[in-house]
């Protein structure tokens, strides 16, 4: 017996997948006037160049050695000066890095854009009756 329906199901799922993907690319997610988008885009490359993701997380995504840096830009007692100093001096398990001023500027703008997305600490989320969670904003 030869099944005919699999090719149709495959086709339908593929069309849905492509449509959903294009929709995701065009979502106006996280667009804000609080940071400079082009500079933040450069900053993400700096984040990747120094492989910060190997140890640090942003919104819980990334490595497990250092702390989550999602809101380090606006955290009390931290911010740009703290980030700059820590990056250049290193710590117990973190090596010292030496980004040039342009790179540091871009990295700070990137972290500002991350911080602009909202609070990342899971302790601030609310659980809905259906099991979904809502962001603190």
């Amino acid at each position: 017996m030869v099944l005919q329906w699999p090719k149709y199901v495959f086709l339908i799922l593929t069309v849905l997948f492509v449509t959903y993907s294009i929709h995701i690319y065009s979502l106006p997610e996280g667009i804000s006037k609080n940071y400079h988008p082009a500079l933040a885009a450069e900053g993400r490359l700096v984040w990747q160049k120094y492989n910060c993701q190997s140890c640090h997380q942003l919104f819980g995504l990334g490595g497990y050695l250092g702390p989550d840096l999602s809101n380090v830009y606006s955290a009390k007692g931290k911010g740009p000066v703290y980030i700059n100093a820590f990056t250049r001096s290193g710590s117990g398990q973190m090596p010292a890095f030496n980004p040039d001023p342009n790179e540091m500027n871009a990295l700070l703008e990137f972290l500002k854009s991350v911080d602009d997305c909202g609070v990342a600490s899971p302790a601030h989320f609310k659980v809905k009756p259906d099991g979904m969670i809502s962001n603190p904003g």
Binding site: I24, L27, S32, A38, A41, R44, L45, L58, S113, C117
Partner: peptide
């Protein structure tokens, strides 16, 4: 660069 300009959009695609 346009895909990297906004962290939320970029990270959503990255994890997709």
């Amino acid at each position: 660069p346009s895909f990297r300009e906004h962290f939320l959009q970029d990270t959503t695609i990255q994890w997709k």
